[in-house]
Nucleic acid binder design. Structure first.
Lengths: 264, 264
DNA sequence: CGTGCCAGGTGCCTT
DNA sequence: AAGGCACTTGGCACG
């Protein structure tokens, strides 16, 4: 066992040692990894039972818990951040409880063998940036409305319409009101129906004709059919292109700044 | 460093040792945990950049990859199962690439400090059972149709209706056709609209009256309004109760089997 | 393969 | 607290 405050590693700890290490880690809000043989119960919105086997359990400083099997992206059991963690011994078993309220949910892990247990303080201030999201598509269209069509003029975005939000709201070259629904991947039927609901609501409240445009990289076959039958338009828009447009605009802004600076 | 074939633990390994351990683990389809300082790039359907910080990286025997920060349920970067893993040294960096095709996606992890690296074979044959899912609700209703209403007779389930699947399809006590849409949680407007679409399609293709019943533990306020205005019905059904009904039926089946056995 | 749909979805934001 | 909605959603089942 090695302990320099930053990282603690215990190979095959006995249960009492494991309980001590865990309580220490809970108090100090350390991150925990356990590898060992366990079974897991879950009760909450649903219930589940996982029979014994060797798994990886991660407990994070914010109370999130993950139980991972040897395969797959998803944890087999989990608890989101904000839950209360407890560790205790019961006979030859290490029991870990993760309790969340509203809705009350409990995950209980029963370890009968611990191959190894490690706790540490993770220092992590690194920024995370995601590109080619729907939000970037929206920003790109607002900066470059011709991505939708020539003469399109956005007026507002994320505009509340009775029971939801319109992605972009504007007028076309002929002054007709346009509602744009953006999807970053293949647009399916729900996207069309979502757009249609906004248009119906707006038509009624404005008592005017309203055009609907679905902007997405692709549209599914029957979504296209529904779209056409409802008299709505599709406009192919690529998320990556939008991301690049934004990047270029950003660069131009910086360039303009330097030009201004050198001229001044 | 300790190695008994089942579990390998390296504290602060140098890069060459890490690369060796990783390649060994990839070949032998071992599960891997690395804790250290890294940055991460992702390119695929979208793109992302994660600046340096200390994280937990898990690589599973099926090629799944998870990068976890010190907080939250979700990995900040990941790769689902089935991707190809590579480890290599580049100057003072351990580089791990996880490549998936269709769609091609690449996650690249650059470690400049490795606090510890562990690889192992997880033995896990334990069965996982989930209770109170939508599927259990459907099975319970099929076994006990009065959960919907007295006299309801299911005919089919998961029946294809033009653009989707009807959860349960049957007739009521007066011989009218009934479509049941099941939701395991609070039913919102989409649930109502989904049900409505099925009914419209069926009405048209059968040229008959069709009743719609939404079965869920709760219905949201405005979903109820929409439901009523469309002349559809709501029936409160509790997923947990359904799960218990199934359990009881299972027990009865086993009991009947033993009774038969002892009588025979 | 795409298309549809559930999930203990989670996370983020707003009334 | 509840509603609306995006997500590299993932996962499965089916045409």
């Amino acid at each position: 066992m090695h302990n320099d405050d930053r990282i603690v590693i215990c190979e095959s700890p006995d249960i009492d040692e494991a309980v001590d290490r865990l309580n220490e880690a809970f108090n100090e809000k350390r991150t925990i990894i356990i590898v060992g043989r366990c079974r897991v119960d879950y009760h909450g919105r649903a219930s589940s039972k996982l029979e014994p086997g060797e798994r990886i359990v991660i407990m994070k400083e914010d109370g999130a818990v993950l139980v991972h099997r040897s395969k797959g992206y998803e944890p087999v059991n989990w608890q989101p951040s904000g839950c209360i963690l407890q560790a205790l011994r019961e006979e030859d078993c290490l029991i870990i409880k993760a309790i969340k309220r509203a809705p009350r949910e409990v995950v209980t892990i029963f370890f009968d063998r611990i191959h190894f247990l490690s706790t540490f303080k993770l220092m992590d201030e690194g920024e995370f940036s995601l590109y080619a999201s729907e939000e970037e598509m929206r920003r790109a269209i607002l900066m470059e409305p011709s991505l939708i069509e020539e003469g399109f003029k956005p007026i507002d975005y994320e505009r509340r319409v009775k029971p939801g939000f319109v992605d972009i709201y504007g007028v076309d070259k002929d002054g007709r009101i346009v509602v744009v629904e953006i999807k970053r991947r293949t647009a399916g039927k729900e996207a069309v129906l979502q757009l249609e609901r906004y248009i119906e609501t707006l038509k009624r409240s404005l008592n005017k004709e309203v055009r609907g445009i679905l902007a997405a990289p692709v549209i599914s076959r029957d979504a296209r059919q529904t779209l056409l039958s409802l008299g709505l338009d599709f406009r192919r828009v690529d998320p990556k292109k939008c991301s690049e447009i934004l990047k270029r605009k950003e660069e131009k802004k910086i360039l303009d700044f330097f030009r201004h600076f050198t001229n001044a």
